[in-house]
Amino acid sequence: MPESHAMAAHQFDDLEQQREAASLGIWVFIATEIMFFGGLFTGYTVYRTQYFASFVAGSHLLDLKLGAVNTAVLICSSLTMALAVYAAQTGKRKLLILFLIFTMILGTGFLGIKFVEYATKYHHHLIPGFNFAPEGVYPPQMQLYFCFYFAMTALHALHMIIGLGLLAALVIMAGRGRFTPESHNPVEAIGIYWHFVDIIWIFLFPLLYLVGGR
């Protein structure tokens, strides 16, 4: 009996089968997440084609530079997450913990910049249903744009917060020496989740910040 049999959960033949099952599981979850965000993207597309001028006006009230910086921050966090998976594959425990913590710092930085943006929207009276009263003349459906802006970015931010919690759990598990080059499925799975959240932002950035030229 190969040594690895002792480590696979009892319902699996070996570690390779267990790894395949874990990989399939997280990808099925990602597919459901595509549908979850898909509804918002569909609604956004419908109203954007219908009220394009209002969406352009709303988009131009966002801070494009902050949006671009946040995109870069999230891409950096994806790199550190990918390197964390590499560290797990090669059995470098200290490096794994270090990269996981880097990823958490960058993720927190993203949420911090997002919070600054939300605060600016609050001060400019741009929160629909709460204090929506922008200065000057604005197209009436601009409020609809901000409904989508807040719904989509908030759902994305919620995923980031959940991701940070999962990363914290990984740091603790890594600290206890739970991961080996042969068995580190949680690192792989949460890595895939983290990159997916990055991809959502990769689409939110052009769809929300880059509507019409400035």
């Binding site: 990989s23 990602i30 595509i34 792989e188 890595g191 990159h195 990769i202």
Partner: peptide
């Protein structure tokens, strides 16, 4: 991101099929 960070370029057929299914829907 999908091909390299999420390793789909090096994965077996099943995860690819699931991903394409999600995009198809």
């Amino acid at each position: 991101v999908v091909l390299f960070f999420m390793h789909l370029r090096y994965s077996s057929a099943l995860p690819r099929l699931v991903m394409l299914g999600g995009l198809f829907w």
